[in-house]
Design a protein around this nucleic acid. Structure first.
Lengths: 109, 109
DNA sequence: ACATAATGTAAGTATCTACTTACGGTAAGC
DNA sequence: GCTTACCGTAAGTAGATACTTACATTATGT
């Protein structure tokens, strides 16, 4: 689970997450993405680089343009982590509830 | 969806995510958590403060100790975001696949 | 009341990060 | 070939952040 940190780091920044959400509505080139944002185009390139390193997006050359799109594998890894975590937390809750009920229940006067 | 950033930020740091994963195996006090980590106890307190601000953990006083535990609402918010995103991305993929098939399909000589 | 234990907070610091501008490289059009 | 368009990278900088030590606060035990 060492490759999960870049996923969270990539999605932690609001601007970068906005770029990712925009790509979720369909593939897009760097220039078009930058045109709809209040930051420079190189900044968008750097964000896309981070998203790509995290496995959240792919890129392919399309003529002179470079089109980025969401990579489902990245979201899949996040989903896997979250699911495993969800079950662990629920198990802990169940165990804790049983322990509370037996050993530390509220005093009935 | 403005409250999602602290969630990702909180889980982006490996140390803080480790604390959260430890809490997923059951509630724990600050001192015990710090004893199993290579950082100081105040650092653990600060991480727990961030996790609490993100809605990922709760804390309750238990005598002189302060016990922290996972708050399922935080994970639920993450799961909701991820699910909505998952469906959006899949829709975009389907639409893109149809568009590719009609307008830009590979040339069959 | 006093001492001890457990924790949160304040202040300081080194590192990381998100941006900027400047520059280099590749593809399309004349 | 030359220009133009699109993009990535390099270098620099202001702000965020993850730690540290020192101190304040609250609860338990004698």
């Amino acid at each position: 689970m060492a490759y999960i940190s870049p996923l969270f780091s990539a999605l932690a920044d609001p601007t970068r997450r906005g770029i990712f959400e925009c790509l979720a509505r369909g593939p897009q080139s760097v220039g078009v993405l930058a045109a709809g944002l209040p930051i420079s185009r190189p900044a968008v390139s750097q964000h896309l680089k981070a998203l790509k390193a995290a496995g959240l997006v792919n890129d392919r050359a399309e003529g002179a343009l470079r089109v980025y799109r969401v990579d489902p594998d990245g979201l899949g890894a996040l989903r896997t982590w979250l699911d495993r975590f969800w079950t662990d937390a629920l198990d802990a809750f169940r165990i804790e509830a049983e322990r509370e009920g037996k050993d530390h229940g509220p005093d009935q006067h």
